[in-house]
Design a protein around this nucleic acid. Structure first.
Lengths: 345, 345
DNA sequence: CTGAAAGCGCTAACAG
DNA sequence: CTGTTAGCGCTTTCAG
């Protein structure tokens, strides 16, 4: 019993139409007029193709043309809305340009990220959009130097020649901390994400700057946490709040961090914003329906994705990287109810 | 200036090692022992490969082997957490089996879905996981019949020979409606998703069944809405509530539907659950932190993805579809605060 | 133990 | 207006 998966090939079509494969190819690729193929044969070929359910093998085509029409995407966790929004933006732009998207999920592991990028390159993707784990970049830079247009999104590397796009973490953080300061907060706990990543570092710098400017200095012991995860947010909030009861506000670096913190705050019997203010990076869907609407620094996530997409397509079209390598996308402070004035005590 | 993108090929490696391409290929593919290649040459080849940064072209390999190692995924909206969770599960399982995932976003359009599936098949994906728009299935069935292992997730087709996996919509709905009934609700408004899709139809059937069993019948005019979107939820809730003030509970078919409804409810100055109860399909992240924690029918979304993934891999391994075609994944009623007793009036 | 040669399905000179 | 031919990079008989 032969497999019924008789995917007909170009030569089948050619045979059926009684022409050579070249003629068939040309007719099907709309080069009939260029090669002055008679209308009748062109039509005949198209009909045969139709009848046989012919689908050109993109694999063969790719090999021959040395063009796969593939863009690779790597994210640390596709179930995180932040990354899925980026993946979507890139995928949709790619589709619009006739490209297909090869998606890979590194599950937060640099090692896996390395392997996956390797695989994608082996599959001859014409460009790469990667949201890296963010602590090591040598593999990214290497790939970029090998001539594969690559853009690094979100967790950037400072001082790199890579094309990168990320939010304006510094300004966003400054706005948030300035708000806290204005409301009288002086002891601010920082629930950090993965230390060593640029978003994390820049946000700490933002806090430091604002405090410096009012003559205070950042107390390093008020920084806790080690991941952008809920668990880290919970753990670090508990730790900070029980050790330093004089803290009046918490600055969380991600939505999961913030929700972990809220869980901890509830357990400790504290109320937001009466006992404690909370502000977080990442906007929260339907924040207005929360028990206490969260004040957030909203990133324009789809814009991050679109920018990344347009930067890679530009690179493949022009054959060279853009002049500007670091692209900052503005953020917006969404002032809601979770930040309150410090009660005079 | 020649392009520096000198991707070395197998023949480059062979040349460098002073052997033929066949030997090089065998050595690199771990067939050294099988072909009794001398240790020394094998090592030599591997070193040359290393030195040249050789990456085997998967395109050429695919063409030769007639195996791409690609699994195609199609979803209507990757930025919807429901679908990104499925996409993630499939992607991760695929990676674990040495496959790569080709992802496509149909943006809710059947037409685009058709095109994308066509493209994926052209790219010779070895299997397909599709979350279809859900109103037309001929293209899916066609592809499956052509011998491409395909599994349809979520918006299934009744009475189809396709392999399908979806939540147990009927039981889930029944549980939710039984809860409402138990709490004294008799006039229940239904905020439906896309009519004609199986999840939507089954859920309506669930409502009908429970009402029938207590001697009531479903009032069709209490059904409104036409999408699984927030906008539809908002619109339908407003419409229903203003037209039928005797409604005491709302059953929403999706998280976005529910949030749209909440917006409408707030605008109308009604309170949950005092004036109105609300229950929805889809679990809501951090529902406990909402102003009114939502009672939901939680789907096990990652399980949907994993099941889909294992069903396609099983199919490619066995070369034939599984005996059982329809796979139902259990759901869980999460009873929270948004459902209350009907106040005696 | 290794190499020569064919061929996966397609396109593009080149030659009529 | 159309066909012949070569070759993209790889694996795999078959033949030493």
């Amino acid at each position: 019993m032969p497999k019924p998966r008789a995917n007909s090939t170009l030569s089948d079509v050619a045979k059926a139409a009684g022409v050579s494969t070249s003629t068939a190819s040309r007719a099907l690729n709309g080069l009939a007029s260029k090669y002055r193929i008679s209308e009748s044969t062109a039509k005949l070929v198209k009909e045969s193709a139709q009848r046989l359910g012919f689908r050109p093998s993109q694999v063969a085509r790719s090999l021959r043309l040395q063009r796969t029409g593939l863009v690779g995407i790597v994210v640390p966790d596709l179930s995180n809305p932040f990354f899925s929004a980026i993946a979507r933006a890139v995928t949709v732009s790619a589709e619009a340009e006739g490209f297909s998207a090869l998606l890979a999920d590194s599950d937060g592991s640099v090692e896996k990220e390395r392997e996956l990028i390797d695989q994608l390159v082996s599959r001859n993707v014409e460009s790469l959009v990667v949201c890296p784990v963010g602590l090591e970049f040598d593999h990214l830079e290497q790939v970029a130097e090998q001539g594969v247009p690559l853009v690094n999104v979100d967790r950037c590397k400072a001082e790199s020649s890579m094309v990168q796009v990320t939010s304006d973490h510094l300004t966003g953080t400054r706005q948030a901390i300035e708000l806290l300061v204005e409301y009288g907060h002086r002891r601010i706990g920082v629930l950090q994400g993965l230390p060593g990543t640029l978003p994390c570092d820049l946000r700490i710098q933002g806090v430091r700057e604002v405090l410096d400017e009012i003559g205070l200095s950042l107390d390093e012991s008020l920084i806790a946490g080690d991941q952008f995860s809920e668990e880290s947010g919970y753990r670090s909030a508990r730790q900070l709040l029980s050790k330093y009861p004089d803290i009046t506000a918490l600055f969380a670096m991600s939505k999961p961090n913030a929700f972990g913190a809220i869980r901890a705050i509830c357990e400790l019997g504290l109320r937001i914003p009466d006992d404690l203010s909370l502000v977080t990076f990442d906007d929260v869907e339907f924040a207005e329906f929360m028990r206490v609407p969260l004040t957030t620094i909203a990133q324009d996530v789809p814009e991050l994705g679109r920018r990344a997409a347009s930067l890679v397509t530009e690179q493949v079209r022009l054959g060279k990287p853009p002049l500007q390598t670091m692209h900052k996308v503005p953020v917006t402070l969404m002032s809601r109810a979770s930040v309150g004035k410090v009660s005079p005590s």
